[in-house]
Design a protein around this nucleic acid. Structure first.
Lengths: 341, 341
DNA sequence: CTCTGCCATGCAAGCGCTTGCAGGATTTGC
DNA sequence: GCAAATCCTGCAAGCGCTTGCATGGCAGAG
């Protein structure tokens, strides 16, 4: 019944205008060197004049694969994830791949939808940066045979690599550092989350504090994630009457929120109370006072993920491995000697 | 020559397994209500067992269109763009559309590539949030007949809407406010950029200062964009010997960087010098001191863009219009009465 | 001037899905 | 019990592109 999609501009149109076959047009557009240069330029001219843009769906379909790197990320606002994403993106572009991102917003329904999307798109590779994922879904990805790498999720699977940061170590380093400054009464401010990495930090915190000194006190507070959440949690802490000399926060955003609230309360940092963060986002360096925090090498992580998804074949497609990254403590001005009480 | 792509799992496989035709499978998967429920569940079961995921490329090809909203953005790290993006994304999801984003990093080559990608993907709608775009490229988008909206770019075109913020007004409000506090010596800190909206602010700044008082002094400084850039520009300002009582920054990030440097120099804000930003990002509320800045309603902008791209038909597809948004001054603690000199 | 061989191009099948149309099976009405 | 209406399902064409194979033309060799 002829053209159903009137406005469509396709290879045929170009072929006709250039008086060649579609195959030739295709070859020109794909830079196959078999085409005579006079023909080539004629085709190029026709395509240009018709304002032709190849239909990527048709191309992927015909080729049986797409040149797309899929990225699933739980929260783009988090500079932590954002940085990893940016690295992946630039690696992909360097390899001539397009990128499609899906944000899950920590919603498991979104995660499922995103995975469906990526598989449906038959992406060339998939990076999943989400902190938590059901075993079932991981299996789905594994079954799809799409080369994939996860950040901080579940256990390694067949042809899937899992990359994670040793949060325990980071937390331990922070606690020992604070302990060495004389702190014996500490609080941990986390957020309402059952995410693995988060509860890991919480647990390690308690253990470490008690290992450093049997008389040490440790309490845990929580608020929603983010600047506001940190502030809110700090408020609760203040109202609880507990007066720690040091506060460890689950991430830098919350730490900045916490500092804001403490300052409002008239407390000085670090004179009255020390504060630490986690991640070492840019802001940590620029807030006031600059924040002592745990640095996580996000660029490095991004590169590792990319290499494991679409690396030059060096070591990809091993039977899934686990790669563990060591975090480093960065000392700035938000921590100091414990105040005498 | 049989299956070229061995691992492919397609409709046929499901159809065979469920002992029906591909058409039926297709109808089940698309929830067409014509299928007998016993057949339906048989198909669903087969699909499930085979771990089948429809090929979205084939689907888009057959349907002649995709259910994808394309978003092109110049810099995801900028919370300003990020917020607009997030709004668009949630609007899209609410309508059952997928989203694909392309980051241009302010590189014009990337912009071209992104536009190609979106057109190639035959996206259902396109939002372009990039601050600057060649007329030629705008035309390309217009010619593609894809419903599109631009933020802050060029002139309205046929079936393309342009949305922009009245930066002049925002800058004027800031200057008059500072002027009313007695400031007569002001600096503007921008970044190295020829982007329209930026030079607009710069120019308006100079005009406004001189309009407020003929004896007022105004100078302009610049650095790279971002926290570091603000710091660097502040350094230059300090070294220049110019001692303004107020500094207007082109955006909040730069303002925070500026404040950091001033503080290091021993200056107090706002006692010694007032500082203002632009955009009113979250950080503006949490930095120290909280920043006086110009609020730009990013969510609202996001919704407007979406409505203009894929709105319920209410008013989309007008012959391109221009929508202008009014910014509001938000007064916080980084500004105060001018110091006596 | 004919023969071999290569170069540039065209032919046509196929990628996985949708969908208008047709037709067999099952109901319903009388 | 039979015709008509209804319901499901299948057939097959087509979406725009790629690509293995076939072929026409032309150059150089003899």
């Amino acid at each position: 019944m002829g053209k159903r999609h009137s406005l469509a501009m396709n290879l045929d149109a170009v072929a006709q205008k250039a008086a060649v076959s579609t195959s030739t047009v295709s070859r020109v557009l794909n830079n196959l060197e078999v085409v005579k240069s006079s023909t080539r330029s004629r085709v190029l001219k026709a395509a240009e004049e018709l304002n032709y843009h190849p239909n990527l769906h048709a191309r992927s379909l015909a080729r049986g694969k797409s040149r797309i790197l899929g990225i699933i990320v739980s929260n783009m606002e988090n500079p932590f994830f954002l940085d990893i994403y940016r690295t992946l993106e630039s690696d992909a572009h360097a390899r001539g791949l397009e990128v499609v991102v899906a944000n899950t917003d920590y919603q498991s329904a979104q995660l499922v939808a995103s995975v469906q999307l990526m598989i449906g798109l038959r992406v060339a590779g998939l990076a999943v940066i989400v902190s938590e994922m059901e075993e079932h879904l991981i299996q789905t990805v594994a079954n799809s045979r799409i080369p994939a790498a996860f950040y901080d999720v579940g256990t390694p699977q067949k042809n899937i690599t899992n990359i994670r940061v040793d949060y325990r170590k980071g937390t331990k380093k922070t606690v020992s550092y604070l302990s060495s400054l004389g702190h014996r009464r500490m609080a941990f401010i986390g957020h309402h989350s059952t995410l693995g990495p988060i509860s890991e930090r919480r647990k390690t915190f308690l253990e470490s504090v008690h290992r450093c000194s049997s008389t040490a006190e440790a309490k845990i507070f929580a608020g929603p994630d983010g600047l506001d959440g940190g502030r809110q949690a700090a408020r609760e802490l203040l109202e609880s009457g507990f007066r720690p000399t040091a506060i460890l926060c689950v991430n830098d955003f919350m730490a900045v929120g916490v500092m804001r609230e403490l300052r409002e309360e008239g407390l000085q940092i670090p004179r009255d109370v020390s504060v630490t963060g986690f991640d070492n986002i840019k802001l940590a360096e620029f807030c006031s006072p600059p924040l002592t925090t745990v640095h996580i090498p996000r660029e490095e992580i991004g590169h590792i993920i990319f290499d494991n998804v679409l690396g030059n074949g060096r070591e990809k497609h091993d039977t899934g491995r686990e790669i563990v990254i060591d975090p480093e403590l960065v000392i700035r001005d938000s921590t100091g000697l414990a105040a005498k009480t």
